[in-house]
């Protein structure tokens, strides 16, 4: 494994019966990169991400995340990654504090470390005032940022974000991307799926998935150049049309 590559995937395939959801995809992600994983709904993004984070076993192909085999060492992979799904899997009936404590505990953090992280997260997100109110009462944008922070409670090298901005209004989306930049600056790798093409502009490199295959992979600038387009949206439309 190349020292710079934190994710390496080779011919990764997932089949459900006759249906091939992910068709032999190969790519690398460098340490510290913001890697955009784009595609229309149903292109196979979520299936691919689930194989990388050890929720789903690949039918064929190999992959390494943070130096561990995604199939044989899935539990090792899990120690080194954070994951936030589009559902922001927080417990609605628990408070922000309790959510942080619970996930910190499940990741095996010490009691002192949990206290530390709780204080930091609440301060960083300015959630101190609602720290003891059930999460259900929080606005969607706050929930989203809390879920993001909790997915990193154990200081993982890589964070996987599966459509983190789904159903959120544009202004909140902008704010969220600012948070993503801050996290990336700390040296963490961000692997993010989205179907908002404007978000692709924020990524260091993007791959575009069409019906299970990666059709394009490069920096947003190079892609626009190659496809002679002004926006990522146009790039995407050209790819889908072919």
């Amino acid at each position: 494994m190349h020292k710079q590559n934190i994710i390496e995937v080779d011919g990764l395939t997932k089949k459900f019966g006759d249906f091939t959801a992910v068709d032999a995809i190969s790519f690398q992600v460098k340490r510290g990169e913001i890697f955009g994983f784009l595609g229309a709904n149903g292109a196979g993004k979520t299936t691919a991400i689930k194989m990388l984070i050890g929720l789903s076993r690949p039918t064929e192909g190999k992959g390494k995340v943070a130096g561990f085999d995604i199939d044989e060492e899935a539990e090792q992979v899990k120690k080194n990654i954070g994951y936030m799904s589009q559902k922001f899997s927080l417990y609605d009936d628990l408070t922000p504090k309790e959510n942080i404590r619970f996930y910190g505990g499940v990741y095996g953090l010490s009691r002192n470390r949990i206290k530390e992280r709780t204080r930091d997260i609440l301060k960083e997100l300015r959630l101190e005032e609602v720290a003891d109110k059930p999460v259900v009462a929080l606005p969607l944008g706050w929930k989203q940022r809390l879920a993001f922070a909790i997915s990193m409670v154990h200081d993982p090298d890589i964070v996987f974000l599966d459509e983190p901005t789904g159903g959120v209004d544009p202004q909140v989306r902008r704010q969220f991307w600012e948070t993503i930049y801050q996290v990336a600056e700390q040296g963490r790798t961000i692997f993010v799926t989205t179907h908002y093409m404007d978000e692709a502009e924020y990524c260091d490199r993007v791959s575009i998935m069409v019906t299970g295959k990666i059709e394009a992979l490069d920096t947003p600038e190079k892609l626009k150049e190659t496809y002679n387009a002004n926006t990522m949206d146009e790039v995407f439309l050209r790819l889908v049309r072919y």
């Binding site: 984070i53 929720l55 539990e75 899990k78 994951y83 899997s89 996930y103 499940v106």
Partner: peptide, 13 residues
């Protein structure tokens, strides 16, 4: 149904 189990499954529990 809520999806929290998926979050638990990506932890080394």
């Amino acid at each position: 149904e809520i999806g929290t189990i998926e979050q638990i499954n990506v932890t080394p529990i």
